[in-house]
């Protein structure tokens, strides 16, 4: 099965569109994507280890909001090129991702506001 899979991988890989994103070099998106993945994980690890434990909860809800980036993909699923069922899935995806984005950023802001400088001190 693995042999068959890898053969299919090799067969299919060059077929992948190499249009806008990867430029004219002909590098398949998969390779570019994996590069981006590794670099982003590295940046993520570097940055997030520096977040103090005090705000780990806002970090999680903020991360939730960012994972709502799926919204960008979901919006395309409302396209007229999608069949009815596909568009229905698109509707569900858009709704859920928007809840994540809007709810996530708002509730994170609500929490971080509490951590901010207290008004009482400012009034002195």
């Amino acid at each position: 099965m693995i042999a068959a899979l890898s053969r299919q991988l090799l067969d299919a890989a060059p077929v992948v569109e190499t249009a806008a994103e990867s430029g004219s070099t002909g590098v398949p998106f998969l390779i570019v994507g994996i590069w981006v993945l590794f670099l982003a994980v590295f940046v993520g690890v570097e940055l997030i280890t520096k977040v103090p434990p005090t705000i780990h909860t806002p970090l999680m809800s903020g991360a939730n909001a960012i994972s709502g980036i799926t919204l960008v993909g979901a919006l395309y699923c409302a396209g007229v090129g999608f069949p009815g069922l596909g568009r229905f899935f698109g509707f569900l995806a858009i709704t859920m991702a928007t809840v994540n984005v809007v709810g996530g950023f708002l509730v994170t802001d609500r929490m971080l506001r509490m951590f901010g400088p207290k008004k009482k001190r400012g009034g002195k």
Binding site: V36, L59, M60, I66
Partner: peptide, 26 residues
């Protein structure tokens, strides 16, 4: 992140892996 590979969209891959890294560290 996986959806980013489906759609060939780098932004999804970047944002997704930032969140993935954050969750793993926690």
């Amino acid at each position: 992140c996986a959806t980013g590979f489906v759609l060939e969209n780098n932004l999804l891959i970047i944002a997704g892996s930032l969140v993935g890294a954050s969750g793993l560290i926690l």
